[in-house]
Amino acid sequence: MSPQYLNLIVQGALYGLVLFSIVTWVLILAKAVQHARVGKQDKQFTQKFWSANSLDAATALGSDASPKSRLANVGFEALYVNDTDGSGSDLEHSWDRQELLERQLRQQIQKEYQSLESGLAVLASIGSTAPFVGLFGTVFGIINALGAIGKSGSASIEVVAGPIGEALIATGIGIAVAVPAVLAFNYYVRRLKVKAAELDNFATDFVNLAQKNGFRVTKATVRPSGKPVHVGAQPVGAAA
């Protein structure tokens, strides 16, 4: 193979590693922002949720971008009934409602998990392949260097050190790209497991609260005064 093609292969490997490095750091920063935002929003929603007077009152919190908020709203939709329709008032319908609630909560947890998991496969792929891409460039770089040494007719250290050293740069770059990708992957997988456990615990608490509430809630709207009004409930002071 001509030295020109060998140089193109080495340069292609180096450019590929540079691209891998850019993608890695973009994903690292994007996931850092995502987890920081999710953590803050979940903390705020959790405080509001547990400060509510009842499960019915918690329906007035509305929906925001936090995973726990979306999970709670999925649960509210599964439990929502109008107090005047009499549904869910016996054990048979309560069991059906419980089964529906648990199924929809599980599905929403999977959706949140997949959202937080996005990008991790790319980090894992870069971390596992970058060293081999660097080694690939090094092999062809050494072949090119040995060809140049053969043409010069000398194998002294002055002649060998320069070309071989340049060829090994690709391996060093490959390792430098792989290390941040592997460390970031392990870190965010750990964060993902912690967040999944938090959502599971919240879902369990939600089911327990729903059980105490007869596996049904009435939607609440918020008055200008900030007090919730439950749809379907009889107003205070109304005639019997």
Rank of each mutant, 00 (worst) to 15 (best):
M1R: 04
L6W: 05
L6G: 15
L8F: 12
V10G: 09
G16T: 15
V18M: 15
W25M: 03
L29D: 06
K31L: 12
K31Y: 06
R37Q: 11
G39V: 07
F45K: 02
S54I: 05
L55D: 12
A57D: 14
A58H: 09
T59A: 04
L61Y: 08
A65Q: 14
S66H: 02
P67V: 01
K68P: 08
G75E: 10
F76R: 00
F76D: 08
L79T: 06
Y80N: 15
Y80S: 15
D85A: 01
D90M: 03
L91H: 12
S94C: 09
D96P: 04
Q98V: 03
E99P: 06
E99S: 09
R103N: 09
Q104S: 06
R106Q: 14
R106C: 14
Q110N: 15
Q110A: 14
K111V: 08
L116M: 15
G119K: 01
A124D: 10
I126Y: 01
T129I: 11
T129P: 09
F136T: 06
G137N: 01
I142C: 06
I143H: 06
A145T: 06
L146T: 11
G147I: 11
I149S: 04
G153C: 04
G153A: 06
S154M: 07
I157G: 12
I157V: 07
E158G: 12
A161N: 07
G165A: 05
A167S: 04
G172Q: 05
A178C: 02
L183V: 15
R191K: 13
R191E: 10
L192V: 08
L192A: 07
L199Q: 05
L199H: 02
T204R: 05
T204M: 10
A210H: 04
A210L: 05
K212T: 10
R216I: 02
R216Y: 02
V217D: 02
T218M: 10
V222H: 02
R223L: 10
G226K: 00
K227L: 13
V231G: 01
A240D: 10
